[in-house]
Amino acid sequence: MTIDKTDITKTTQSVAVLGANGHTGRFVVTELLRRGLKPIAIGRNAERLAAAGFPGRGIQCREAVVEDDEALDRALAGAAAVINCAGPFMDTADAVARAALRAGIHYLDVTAEQPSVQATFERHEVAARKAGVAIIPAMGFYGGLADLLVAAVMDEWEHADTIEIRVALDSWLPTRGTRVTGEKNTARRLAVSGGQLEPVHQPPAERVSILPAPFGRQTFVELPFSEVPLIARHVRTKELHSFLSTIALRDVRDPSTPPPQAVDETGRSAQRFAVEVIVAQGDMRRRIVAQGQDIYAVSAPIICEAVQRILSRDIRDVGAKPPAAIFNAASFLQALGPDLSVEISET
C-alpha cells in the first residue's frame, strides 16, 4: 500500500482521522462519508489501514506516529480539522493538538480521561484563540454528551446548586483501547465539591434511580469521566458529581468480558445506554434523559456533528473550549435525533 504524502490544497471538506483503523475511528470515518465530508485515514501502520478497507472505499490513507512531528504535519496537510481517536489520549492529545495548531486547523478528540482534558485546556487555549481555531477535547459519548445535556437542561439558568449525571449501560463490552487506557490512567478522579474541583470522596457515593425501559431501577456508584472538567470549565455549580451504573462497572472491571460484537450492518453492538442529568437550583429541579445504542458508535455522529458545525461556522466561539461553550446545546442535541432520544422534564 502506498501512503499519499502530497500536500493537497486545504478544503473545508477534508477531515483527518487519527486512529482511523481503531474501533471508534472506523465509525467516525463512515459517519464523515455519510455527511458528505472527505476523511483522511491516518494510522501508525499502512497494512492496518489497508486491512480496514479504506482504499477500497476511495479513502485517502496516510501513515504517521504521534512521536514524529514531521510525519504528523504531512498527515494533516490539506485537512480543515483533525479528529483524534487514538488513545490513550494522555499519550496522544498534546502532540496532535500541537500539530493541528501548526497547521492552523481545528482539533477534536473522544477522550474519557480527565487529565487529558485538563492538560488540553491549560496548554492550548491561548494559541487556539490566537489561531482562530476550535480545540475541543472529549467530544464523544463520555464528556461531550453530558456537557451538552447539562447546558440544554439548565437553559436560562446562570448557575446551579447541584448537578448529578448518571450513566446507565445494560452492558459494557470494552474495546482493547478502553482496557489499555484504564490500565494507564491511574490519576485520582475529580468531582466538584463546595464549588471546587476535588478528588472523589472514598468510599464513593451511591445513587439509585428509575430510568425508562429497558433499564428500570438502577444502582450507580460515583465514577466521573471527562464530563467533569468540561462542565466545571464553564458552568457555575456548588456540586457536580457523576455516576456509572454498577452493571457497567462490573463488566469493565472483569478481564474476561469480551469486546463489542456487531449486531447490524453498521457495526454497532446491541448495548443500550441512558444518560440522566438532574440539576437543582433552590427548590427547582430539572431532569434530562438521553438514550441510544452503543457508546462507541454514537460518538461518531456526536463528533462529526461538531466538525460539520465548525466547518460551517455555526459556532459561538473559538479556542480550547468545552462543547457547550462553542455550540448551541439544544440545537446540537436535536440534530442527533436519529441516533439519540432526549427528554426534558421538571421534577
Rank of each mutant, 00 (worst) to 15 (best):
D4K: 04
K5D: 11
T9N: 07
T11Y: 01
S14R: 15
V15Y: 00
L18V: 15
N21D: 00
T24I: 13
G25K: 04
G25Q: 09
E31P: 04
R34Q: 14
N45M: 01
E67S: 15
L72W: 03
L72C: 07
D73K: 13
A75I: 05
A77I: 05
A80I: 10
N84D: 14
A86T: 03
P88M: 07
P88S: 08
M90Y: 02
D91Y: 05
R98F: 03
L101D: 01
R102Q: 07
H106E: 05
L108G: 04
D109G: 09
V110S: 08
P115T: 06
P115K: 08
A119K: 14
E122H: 14
E125S: 14
K130V: 13
A134H: 11
G140P: 12
A146F: 00
D147I: 03
A152W: 00
D155R: 13
E156F: 04
H159R: 14
I163T: 07
E164R: 01
L169E: 06
L169K: 04
S171Q: 14
P174D: 08
V180M: 04
T181I: 03
T181L: 00
G182F: 05
N185Y: 04
R188G: 03
R189I: 01
L190E: 03
A191E: 12
G194Q: 08
G194Y: 06
Q202T: 13
P204Y: 07
P204E: 08
A205M: 11
V208D: 05
S209M: 09
S209R: 13
P212T: 10
P214F: 08
V221F: 01
E222S: 09
L223S: 10
L223Q: 08
L223M: 11
F225M: 12
P229W: 09
L230A: 07
H234F: 09
V235L: 06
R236A: 12
L244W: 07
L244G: 09
D251H: 14
E265M: 06
R268F: 00
S269G: 15
Q271E: 15
Q271M: 15
Q271A: 15
A274F: 03
A274K: 01
A274W: 02
V277K: 00
V279P: 01
A280P: 02
Q281E: 12
R285E: 15
V289D: 05
Q291F: 02
A300K: 10
P301Q: 10
I302T: 01
L311I: 07
R316I: 05
R316N: 11
P322F: 09
P323V: 03
F327S: 11
N328T: 05
F332M: 06
F332K: 10
S345K: 02
